[in-house]
């Protein structure tokens, strides 16, 4: 009977966790180059629950013995970053770059090389191409790109020109599917496994004076939010029912009739 209480509580927990992702997606609805995260609530019916702490008489000492099957209301799955291309937004600003295709810009940050889809760049005090936060944009040769004064243009292949002279080429890289990325803040990504090295991107074009909008699906997020709230309420009610049932069992069933 109490087990049902846990089932309902796990449902509330799963809704809560998913809500954290939805609110983060919504907060970043206007963040340049943002990639939304999704989690599915897995719908598998039963999960084996294990005994914690004291060893079970059924199992060797120290191991966790099985307690039985627990019908899980919901389990939030591993959040996945959705790398779908965001829409292109024209800004008319010369130092805005957007990537069309799966590539990333390479940035030199105090924590090492990081990768980003946010190409709203500027220059630093020494005239090097940089982000607004001061991280340097790396060129294909691994060095920052120096921009002398004059009219700056970027070609689709990432070649940077000032007054029609080549001054560098942006390092546009991509990762293989088996090289997962993690978010590190400031719209940047890092490989989840430290050793993973990207390779030069194929088929990614740079578009000047454009930015890539956040790929958050606002309508979808609202629907998910409603769904989560209902699921949460339903689980909450289940807990109340369970509580009432336990209350009955304790107070009524055992009450001696007089």
């Amino acid at each position: 009977m109490i087990r049902g209480l846990y089932t309902a509580a796990s449902g509330m927990l799963a809704s809560m966790r998913r809500m954290e992702l939805v609110t983060n997606n919504l907060a970043n609805a206007q963040t340049t180059g943002f990639k939304q995260e999704r989690t599915a609530t897995s719908t598998f019916a039963e999960a084996l629950i294990m005994q914690d702490g004291s060893p079970s008489p059924m199992a060797p000492t120290g191991s966790r013995g099985p307690l039985g099957q627990l019908g899980m209301a919901a389990v939030s799955e591993d959040p996945l970053v959705d790398f779908t291309q965001g829409s292109m937004q024209e800004t008319g600003r010369a130092y805005d770059f957007a990537l069309e295709g799966p590539g990333f810009f390479s940035l030199q940050t105090p924590d090492g090389v990081r990768y980003s889809r946010d190409g709203s760049f500027t220059r630093d005090g020494l005239g090097r191409l940089a982000t607004g936060e001061g991280d340097l944009v790396l060129g294909a040769d691994g060095n920052p790109i120096q921009i002398p004064g004059g009219k700056m243009q970027v070609r689709p292949d990432g070649t940077v020109q000032v007054e029609d002279q080549d001054v560098g080429k942006l390092a546009i890289v991509e990762f293989d599917l088996e090289q997962p990325l993690r978010k590190v803040g400031n719209n940047q990504f890092a490989p989840r496994n430290d050793g993973d090295q990207p390779h030069a991107a194929q088929g990614t074009a740079v578009r000047q004076s454009f930015i890539e909008s956040s790929n958050v699906d606002m309508a979808g997020a609202q629907t998910t939010m409603l769904e989560l709230q209902r699921a949460y309420d339903a689980s909450q009610r289940m807990i109340q029912y369970q509580d009432e049932l336990v209350g009955r069992a304790v107070n009524d069933i055992a009450r001696p009739t007089s």
């Binding site: 796990s10 927990l13 799963a14 966790r17 897995s42 598998f44 999960a47 084996l48 629950i49 294990m50 627990l70 899980m72 389990v75 939030s76 799955e77 591993d78 959040p79």
Partner: peptide, 11 residues
């Protein structure tokens, strides 16, 4: 902390 499915089919 997220509850995730582990290798033994548990959480």
């Amino acid at each position: 902390y997220f509850g995730v499915q582990d290798d033994q089919g548990g959480i």
